[in-house]
Nucleic acid binder design. Structure first.
Lengths: 142, 142
DNA sequence: TCCTTCTTTAGAATTATTCCAATTTCAACT
DNA sequence: AGTTGAAATTGGAATAATTCTAAAGAAGGA
C-alpha cells in the first residue's frame, strides 16, 4: 500500500466523524507529525511530506494541519510570534520552550492539575481550553 | 507639565536602571497602557497616543513597547496568532481570552500556584517564565 | 559648543498565513 | 460505467503584523 499506516486509522475514524474525506495529503501530513514528534512548523512539515508527495503544495499542508487541529488529532502550539508548531500528543500536557536551542518539549501534567488550575477562575468564567507554557533552559537531550 | 504623571516615575527609574533615556514617547506609551488596561494591540496604543503626540510613528510605538517589555514594566501577551497585546499588570497573573468578545482578562494567581506548577517540571528543566492562558467564555463585565 | 550615542521617523521589506479562482478528486446516485 | 455535486488541492496573489533601514533629531558629557 502506498499510504502510511503508522496511525492505525485513528485519522480515518476522526475524519469520518467530522464528515470529512480521507486523502493521501492528510495521511502523509499526519504521518509526518507522528514520525518525528519535534513540533515542526508548517514549512518543516511541507519539506518532510514533499519527499513522499512531491506535488503537494504549502497551502495544502496548511489546510491539512488545520483539518487535523479541527479533528482534535493535533494541537497548534504558539510561542510568542514564532511560526505555529504542530503537536500530535493527545494527552494533556504543557510545553517547554528552550530558548537556546529553539526546541519545544512536551511536559506531561499530573492528574488533577488542570482541574486545580481551572479552579482559580472567578465565578462565571468558563474555560474551554488551558494553555500552559514554560520558557527557559531545558536539560541536554539524551 | 506636559508629560503624563500617572506612573509615579517608576518608568524613569526602570529606564535609568537599564541605561536608557526617558523620552516623551516612552512616557505617553506607558501612560496609555496604564490609563486603559484593556490589553491593547500596538495599533491601538498608536491610535491612543497619537491624540496626544500627533507626530509619533507606529515604529516608535513598537520600539517603546519593546523597551517597556525589556524593562519589566509591561508584559507582551500572545494568543494564537492574533496581534500581540500589552499588559502593564506587574503581579503574577494568567490571561483569559473571551472568544465571543475578543477581550482579554487578567486572572490573579493564588500564592504558591506558580511554584506548584513549576514543580511539575522534570529535573534539569529551569523555567524563567511561565505563561498560563485560558480560552473560553467570560462573564458579562459590569 | 562639539561629539557621541541614543532615539525617532517614514517607508520599504519581511514573512507566516490566508485567500482566491481554477482544476481535480471522489463518493453517491442513477 | 457515466454523471453529478460537494469537497479537496493547487499555485499564485494578497494580507497584515512586525521588523528593518537609513536618515534626521534630541540629549548628555567633555
Amino acid at each position: 500500500m502506498s499510504t502510511p499506516a503508522i496511525h492505525s486509522d485513528a485519522l480515518a475514524q476522526k475524519l469520518a466523524d467530522s464528515g470529512l474525506r480521507n486523502t493521501p495529503q492528510r495521511e502523509f501530513v499526519y504521518d509526518a507529525l507522528l514520525k518525528k514528534r519535534d513540533h515542526p512548523t508548517a514549512d518543516e512539515v511541507y519539506a518532510r511530506v514533499k519527499t513522499q508527495l512531491p506535488g503537494i503544495s504549502l497551502a495544502t499542508v496548511y489546510n491539512c494541519l488545520e483539518t487535523l487541529v479541527q479533528c482534535d488529532l493535533v494541537r497548534a502550539v504558539n510561542f510568542e510570534r514564532a511560526p505555529t508548531r504542530y503537536c500530535p500528543n493527545q494527552h494533556p500536557h504543557a510545553h517547554f520552550h528552550d530558548e537556546s536551542t529553539g526546541s519545544t518539549h512536551d511536559i506531561e501534567l499530573p492528574p488533577g492539575l488542570l482541574a486545580k488550575i481551572k479552579g482559580i477562575l472567578p465565578p462565571g468564567y468558563d474555560a474551554e481550553a488551558i494553555e500552559l507554557t514554560f520558557r527557559g533552559k531545558a536539560p541536554p537531550s539524551r
